[in-house]
Amino acid sequence: MPQIYFLCTGNSCRSQMAEGFAKQILGEQWRIASAGIEMHGLNPKAVQVMAEKNIDIAHNRSKLIDMDYLKTSDLVITLCGDARDRCPVTPANVEKIHWPLRDPAQAQGTESEILTVFRQVRDEIETRILALAQQVATK
């Protein structure tokens, strides 16, 4: 079974949303996980905007990178420059992709403006996961 790992700095927003979409879109034929260089806890706004897409990530938890999972993954996707730059070395057979996504947790402004940023990042992740699903379907 192919295995994918989504990595970001704190495993609180972007990687959690990517894991949620991947589980829904790629389905049970993939092992899917997410982690961070650090643990920042699950961001409630990420939970909120994913619920708007009928994806429940409320029971997820922030996790540190598991070296065994990393080394046995078929695909590692970093969602920020920090994760890309600080990701531990992976074997040559592990495909690496970088998606440079804005950190919604850094958004400032009114509650509405901050949620807009979370939704924009969420929607970009969904688009990228849908494109990934098409790519892996044609391999």
Rank of each mutant, 00 (worst) to 15 (best):
Met67Cys: 07
Gly27His: 10
Ala58Trp: 05
Lys71Ala: 15
Gln29His: 13
Glu52Asp: 15
Leu101Met: 11
Ile57Trp: 00
Arg122His: 12
Cys80Asp: 10
Lys63Ser: 11
Asp66Trp: 06
Asp85Ala: 12
Asp103Pro: 06
Ala51Met: 08
Pro44Cys: 09
Ile114Cys: 06
Asp103Val: 09
Asn54Phe: 06
Glu113Arg: 06
Ile32Leu: 13
Val89Cys: 09
Phe6Trp: 03
Leu132Ile: 02
Gln48Cys: 09
Ala33Leu: 09
Gly20Ile: 02
Ala51His: 03
Arg128Gln: 11
Ile57Cys: 06
Val117Gly: 05
Cys87Trp: 05
Gln24Ser: 14
Asp82Pro: 00
Asp123Ala: 07
Glu19Phe: 00
Glu52Ala: 15
Asp123Lys: 03
Ala105Phe: 00
Val121His: 03
Cys13Ile: 02
Thr138Met: 01
Val121Ile: 11
Glu95Ile: 05
Gln135Ile: 01
Leu7Ile: 15
Leu75Asn: 07
Leu64Phe: 15
Thr78His: 01
Arg14Ala: 04
Pro88Ser: 12
Ser15Gln: 11
Arg122Pro: 10
Asp85Ile: 06
Thr72Ala: 14
Val117Ala: 07
Arg86Leu: 15
Met17Asn: 02
Ser15Phe: 10
Glu38Ala: 11
Arg31Glu: 08
Ala105Thr: 02
Lys45Phe: 10
Leu101Ser: 05
Arg14Thr: 08
Ala58Asp: 03
